[in-house]
Simulated assay, not measured.
Amino acid sequence: MNRPVVVGVDGSPSSLVAADHAARAAVLRSRPLHLVHGYLHALGYGVPINPYELGIPEPSDEAEKMLERVAADLLGRWPGLAVEARQVAGGPGATLVEESRRAELVVLGSRGHGGFAGLLLGSVGTQVTAHAHCPVLVVRPAEEPIPVDGPVLVGVDGSEAAELAVGQAADEAARRRAELVLVHVRVPDEDAGGTAALLDTAAAAAGGSHPGLAVTTRELHADKPEAALIDASRDGALVVVGTRGRGGFAGMLLGSVSQSLVQHAHCPVLVAHPYGHAR
Results as ranks from 00 to 15, higher is better:
141 P>T: 01
257 V>I: 05
83 V>Y: 01
51 P>F: 11
185 V>L: 11
227 A>H: 04
195 T>K: 11
55 G>H: 10
253 L>R: 15
47 V>N: 10
97 V>D: 02
249 F>M: 11
208 G>N: 14
137 L>F: 10
245 G>A: 10
58 E>V: 02
186 R>Y: 09
251 G>M: 05
182 L>R: 03
170 A>I: 06
262 V>W: 01
222 A>F: 04
148 V>Q: 14
271 V>M: 05
139 V>A: 04
137 L>A: 06
10 D>Q: 09
85 A>H: 08
221 H>N: 01
189 D>C: 04
7 V>H: 04
8 G>M: 02
178 A>H: 09
195 T>V: 15
48 P>D: 12
55 G>F: 06
96 L>I: 07
240 V>C: 11
236 G>I: 02
39 Y>L: 03
206 A>C: 10
99 E>M: 14
147 P>D: 12
209 S>F: 03
67 L>V: 10
108 L>S: 03
18 A>M: 06
26 A>K: 06
141 P>M: 07
82 A>K: 10
202 A>D: 07
159 S>T: 07
58 E>L: 11
191 D>S: 15
275 Y>D: 13
25 A>P: 01
182 L>H: 03
261 L>P: 02
184 H>W: 10
167 G>K: 07
198 L>C: 09
237 A>D: 08
172 E>I: 01
230 I>M: 07
245 G>P: 07
93 G>K: 03
177 R>K: 14
10 D>A: 12
112 G>H: 05
71 A>K: 14
183 V>Y: 05
243 T>L: 02
270 L>R: 05
195 T>P: 05
24 R>M: 11
200 D>L: 13
178 A>P: 06
109 G>A: 07
58 E>D: 15
171 D>G: 09
189 D>F: 13
146 I>D: 01
17 V>T: 15
14 S>D: 12
185 V>Q: 09
161 A>M: 05
107 V>G: 08
157 D>W: 08
200 D>A: 15
79 P>E: 07
113 H>G: 13
60 S>G: 12
197 A>P: 04
261 L>Q: 07
50 N>Y: 08
96 L>W: 06
96 L>V: 06
234 R>G: 10
34 H>C: 11
259 Q>C: 00
187 V>D: 11
257 V>L: 01
161 A>R: 05
63 A>N: 12
21 H>R: 02
202 A>M: 04
257 V>S: 02
16 L>F: 03
92 P>Y: 00
115 G>K: 02
195 T>W: 03
140 R>Y: 00
190 E>W: 14
68 E>K: 14
45 Y>P: 00
114 G>A: 14
247 G>N: 12
189 D>M: 06
177 R>I: 00
86 R>I: 00
23 A>D: 08
20 D>Q: 15
257 V>W: 02
259 Q>F: 01
180 L>A: 04
37 H>A: 11
7 V>F: 03
6 V>K: 03
6 V>S: 06
70 V>Y: 04
79 P>Q: 06
262 V>D: 00
150 G>T: 00
203 A>K: 00
271 V>K: 08
192 A>H: 15
144 E>Q: 15
11 G>Y: 01
239 V>Q: 10
46 G>D: 13
148 V>T: 13
66 M>V: 03
74 L>N: 09
51 P>H: 10
37 H>N: 15
210 H>L: 11
14 S>W: 00
170 A>H: 05
264 H>C: 09
172 E>G: 07
